[in-house]
Amino acid sequence: MSEQYHIPVLYKETLDALQIQPDGIYVDCTFGGGGHSRGILEQLNENGRLIAFDQDPDAKQNIPDDNRILFVPHNFRHIQRFLRLHKIAAVNGILADLGVSSHQFDVGDRGFSIRFDGPLDMRMDQQQPETAEHLLQSNTEQELQNMFSQYGEVTNAKTLARHIVQQRKQATFKTINEFKALLAPVIKGNPNKYLAQVFQALRIAVNDEMGALKDMLQQLPNLLQPGARVAVITFHSIEDRLVKNFFRQGSFEEIEDNNPFVQHEKFKDLKVITKKPVVPTDAEAKQNPRSRSAKLRVAEKA
């Protein structure tokens, strides 16, 4: 398993939060470089098991030679289906480290990074049909505006969407450099920050990251044994809000805590362990700048 592939974020905090039982069954929804998985395996005895999901075929190179691990090369949104397929009804803990691995950012031809030229791809699962280029060519102006505004918090999302729709009639943008050149007239503020926000929005949309997260969260209550824990690391405010709301109330809508006239049903399936999210220490953020926006939330099956 490769530390260079991806440095595991909030490593100790996450493993401690899972309260790993040596003979338990655990799921790593986002295997990646296998950093968190290695930590779980170190605490399991010969009867323990780890099921590792990752839709990115590159992650397979990091699977350890260990008969306690089962690798599932699919999106974690299908977690229940594949656990049932392997005759697993409930597990002792689930971990999801969301976002993109360092490896994906560092390989130019995957199209995730503004630092390299390469195809406008951005698919984590390269079996799926829609690339970033296809999305940019086919989405309506309103869909593009919503995507850039919601997922990238791009300040001039409306102008950007209109510009892309106008330009795509005559200009081609099959590569990252072509797309960056196309965006040059509408970039506001720091170009690198602006492009990073645009690319983040595209990546989230191409991979339906919010939809996959919702699907996974809704399956949790049926997959966790009583007392089992789930730990989710997010890197985006929307992801964090979805996790927070689901852990608290079993739905994704915001609720008004301070309104005395609104009665809320208490969600009894999960008990929130982290009242506030756990964030990296200053030392970790300095050592691994990509960890800065990470937030860990933990819940326990009631």
Results as ranks from 00 to 15, higher is better:
Leu195Met: 14
Ser102Tyr: 07
Ile176Met: 09
Val278Phe: 05
Pro226Gln: 03
Val154Met: 10
Gln104Ile: 02
Gly211Asn: 14
Pro221Arg: 02
Thr140Gly: 14
Ala96Tyr: 01
His78Glu: 14
Asn75Tyr: 06
Ser251Arg: 13
Ile176Cys: 03
Gln104Ser: 06
Met147Leu: 15
Leu44Ser: 05
Pro129Met: 12
Asn190Leu: 04
Val107Thr: 07
Asp240Met: 07
Leu224Gln: 01
Gln219Met: 08
Gln43Met: 13
Gly24Glu: 03
Leu15Asn: 03
Gln80Phe: 00
Gln21Pro: 03
His134Met: 15
Arg203Lys: 09
Met122Ile: 02
Tyr151Phe: 14
Gly24Tyr: 02
Met1Thr: 01
Gln137Cys: 10
Asp121Pro: 05
Tyr26Gly: 05
Asn288Trp: 00
Asp54Cys: 11
Val107His: 06
Ala196Pro: 05
Thr234Asp: 11
Phe31Gln: 01
Asn62Lys: 05
Glu284His: 01
Asp23Trp: 05
Lys188Met: 10
Val230Glu: 01
Ala196Gln: 15
Ala161Glu: 14
Phe252Val: 04
His74Ile: 01
Leu213Asp: 13
Val154Trp: 04
Ala299Tyr: 03
Leu120Ser: 03
Val165Ala: 08
Leu18Phe: 08
Val243Gly: 11
Glu46His: 14
Arg81Gln: 13
Pro8Ser: 00
Gln167Ile: 04
Phe82Asp: 14
Thr14Val: 13
Val243His: 07
Ile94Tyr: 05
Gln150Glu: 15
Arg68Glu: 07
Glu153Gly: 10
Val27Cys: 11
Ala157Tyr: 07
Ala157Gln: 08
Ile255Gln: 13
Pro191Thr: 09
Phe179Trp: 04
Leu136Met: 12
Lys60Cys: 03
Asp106Thr: 06
Gln21Phe: 04
Phe82Pro: 01
Asp125Thr: 00
Thr140Asp: 13
Phe252Leu: 09
Asp106Gln: 15
Ala283Thr: 10
Asn177Ile: 00
Thr30Met: 09
Ala205Ser: 13
His86Arg: 04
Leu183Pro: 06
Pro119Ser: 06
Gln80Ala: 04
Ala89Trp: 00
His78Gly: 06
Gln249Ser: 15
Asp66Lys: 12
Gln142Phe: 09
Leu70Val: 08
Leu18Asp: 06
Leu83Asp: 06
Gln287Val: 00
Gln167His: 10
Thr274His: 03
Ile204Lys: 12
Pro8Glu: 08
Gln166Pro: 05
Lys169Cys: 15
Asn190Arg: 12
Val206Asn: 13
Ala205Asp: 09
Asn62Glu: 02
Asp97Val: 08
Leu15Tyr: 02
Gly24Cys: 09
Leu10Met: 11
Gly227Asn: 01
Met216Thr: 11
Val262Ala: 11
Glu153Val: 11
Lys193Thr: 13
Ala294Val: 01
Leu217Glu: 10
Gln4Lys: 04
Ser102Val: 03
Lys268Met: 08
Cys29Gln: 01
Leu18Trp: 05
Asn47Glu: 12
Glu239Asn: 10
Gln150Arg: 15
Glu130Phe: 07
Gly211Gln: 08
Ala283Lys: 11
Val107Ser: 11
Ile273His: 02
Gln4Val: 06
Phe235Ser: 10
Leu98Thr: 02
Ala231Cys: 09
Ile7Phe: 08
